[in-house]
Amino acid sequence: MKIIGLIVAVLTGALLIYGTVDFPGWADPASPASTHLSPHFIEKTMEETSVPNIVTAVLADYRSYDTMFETTVIFSGGVACFILLRIFRRKEPSDRLYRHVLTGATIRVKEGGKIPLDSDDFERIDTLWTPHDLIIKTVCRLLIPFIQLFGLYVIAHGHHSPGGGFQGGVILGASIMLLAISQDLRTAVQRMREKVDALLSPTGVFIYAGTGALCLLLGLNFMDYSALASVLYVDPVTARSHGILIVEIGVGIAVMATIIWIYNNLSSAGKYDEGL
């Protein structure tokens, strides 16, 4: 079986490499893409959309159907992880470990047992708990706000520099994942509840598709952001630039929530209790 798999993989790879022979040379000015599409984007993007970063303009304006369904794919990935992994349990897990913060003593609470919850002396710990390193904890706590600020910058500055909704969304999600790794999963889930993830993820897709549908309602084609000019009180060219920003924010929200959602389901095996 292994040999058959190897033969199939090698054959497919050889066919793919054979297929690349027909490709035009790298950065060949005579290739069809460079003679028909690229000159239009390079010459006209600035005057049509007033967006200096051509990649962002192509992704979110000229080829926005593509990006909209990419966002939908990411949302579907989050929903698939949720459906496959999530386990709903009403009760608390039978055995829980608590740690007395001042003395460091660990106590084990069996099923039905309770500890005085009103006191802050005890903190819940995971079964595989190891003492938190002070340096890691402090550095992560200091870094997370700056990471989030950078994520917002990447989303908002996607018109002028590399970046955009996808990258900024992943950076925002990664900041919450860093919180979950450096503290524990319950801390991260408290900051970003499961319901918030599950609501924000389709909201982002809805913002994207809704912007497109708004253009349709205002009398132009789906995703033709120049229709937003009458709503935003700007000229059509600036409206296209603003439309790109709106859909990028939608993509950012969807990607951020989905990344956190997938991570929570994966690392806690769907129980949202003890995790990485």
Binding site: Q167, V170, A174
Partner: peptide, 23 residues
Amino acid sequence: DVSFTEATVGAGASTVFFVAAVF
């Protein structure tokens, strides 16, 4: 732009997903 996406999604998020799945 592609490089930025690869750095955040490929090297960042998906590695954490793999580690979480292994865990």
